[in-house]
């Protein structure tokens, strides 16, 4: 698998050379585009991260976790995974840290760790993606698509926890 990335680079560069593209000039221009993208998402990310930090610091997130644990259990999601399930839509690095912790605590081949791995791999950080994709657009009618994404992510987690019992 690891060889894919070098091959892609070699392939694209080789083809561009053949087509007489000024590779350095275009590559630099591309990096410039990247810099502008980064700047355009910065304000949205700052606002979202401030909100997340406050939410965590105020103890509201721990309260939410406590309230939702029995609800999640009713759907077959182990209570050890409540925090991961809640964290995943908001923060990729945060949920990766949680996953590492869970794997260490319960052992890589335990049911809990396998469930956590499946849940982590089967969804994305929806809030982060929405902030990045829709930064700088005038109309942001995102509510319904976001709800749909979160709902399907939740169902996938429920499904994952069942599948891990026998797969």
């Amino acid at each position: 698998m690891g060889v894919i990335i070098p091959l892609i680079f070699l392939g694209v560069m080789g083809y561009a050379l053949f087509k007489r593209v000024k590779i350095y000039d275009e590559f630099t221009a591309g990096v410039g585009e990247g810099a502008r993208f980064t700047l355009s998402v910065l304000p949205c990310l700052a606002a979202v991260f401030m909100m997340c930090e406050l939410f965590e610091a105020s103890g509201l997130s721990a309260m939410l976790e406590k309230t939702l644990a029995p609800v999640f259990s009713a759907f077959g999601i182990p209570k050890e995974l409540t925090k991961l399930t809640l964290m995943k839509p908001f923060s990729g690095s945060g949920s990766l840290a949680l996953l590492t912790e869970i794997i260490k605590k319960y052992g890589a081949d335990s049911y809990i760790a396998r469930c956590a791995s499946v849940c982590f791999g089967s969804s994305e950080t929806a809030f982060y993606i929405s902030a990045v994709y829709f930064a700088g657009l005038k109309k942001k009618r995102l509510a319904i698509p976001l709800i749909i994404v979160l709902f399907s992510g939740f169902l996938a987690t429920v499904l994952g926890c069942q599948l891990c019992k026998f797969m």
Partner: peptide, 27 residues
Amino acid sequence: TLAVCASLFAIYAVWCGLSRVAEKSGL
């Protein structure tokens, strides 16, 4: 945010650079 933007820029710098080359070559 700054830490995330730094890693975001690193990703963008690599892939936007390459994708621009791929675009200009017609690939």
